[in-house]
């Protein structure tokens, strides 16, 4: 065990897109990060048993955490993003935990790995704890704290109506509806 009381900071920040693809045969969804300056689009393509089609691009970032004191580096390139639980399903483990945490003024945030979920890509409790420490070190914890949970707690992804903390519509051509264009 290291003696260092780690003080984490973000490093290696990469901006890009989280790309969502869907298979038209099995309805499975997969995601990946693209560091490109433009969204991914194009025709569907066949890969083994799957026929993938790009569904959505969300602007996002990837980062690693490094300890300011001892220099220890933790990579988080397997994190797709963070989700805020809207408690849409009463029997969802995240919703149940969130209600419990709320009493202690603790906010729950769900760390997402890329889809589909695989055993070898799950976020370990140790790494979730590092994320949690990082966000708490960044805030005034006398007011409230953050708890980071794994997306493995969500049983049925297709029923989840949580809020992804992603940028959507940055490149959208759709103007906001509330004002008329000036020209």
């Amino acid at each position: 065990m290291s003696e260092c009381q780690h003080q984490w900071e973000m490093t290696n920040i990469r901006f890009g897109f989280v790309v969502f693809e869907k298979c038209s045969h099995c309805n499975g969804i997969r995601t990946f990060f693209s560091a490109s300056g433009h969204p991914m689009v194009g025709d569907e393509y066949v890969e083994g048993e799957h026929t993938w089609r790009c569904m959505e691009n969300a602007q996002s970032l990837q980062f690693d955490l490094q300890c300011k004191q001892c220099g220890q580096l933790e990579k988080f390139d397997d994190v797709m993003g963070f989700l805020y639980c809207t408690e849409c399903l009463d029997d969802c483990k995240v919703a149940i935990l969130q209600k419990k945490y709320a009493e202690k003024k603790t906010w729950v945030i769900v760390a997402f790995g890329f889809l589909p979920r695989r055993k070898d890509t799950e976020l370990s409790p140790r790494r979730l704890k590092i994320l949690e420490d990082y966000f708490n070190q960044r805030r005034d914890t006398s007011r409230s704290t953050i708890a980071v949970l794994s997306f493995d707690l969500i049983d049925d992804f297709s029923r989840c109506k949580g809020e992804f903390i992603h940028d959507v519509g940055m490149l959208s051509l759709e103007p906001p509806k509330e004002r008329k264009p000036l020209f």
Partner: peptide, 13 residues
């Protein structure tokens, strides 16, 4: 103005 600005704001306090 979309809903996820609230969790984002909270995450960074």
């Amino acid at each position: 103005t979309h809903k996820s600005i609230v969790p984002a704001a909270n995450l960074v306090d």
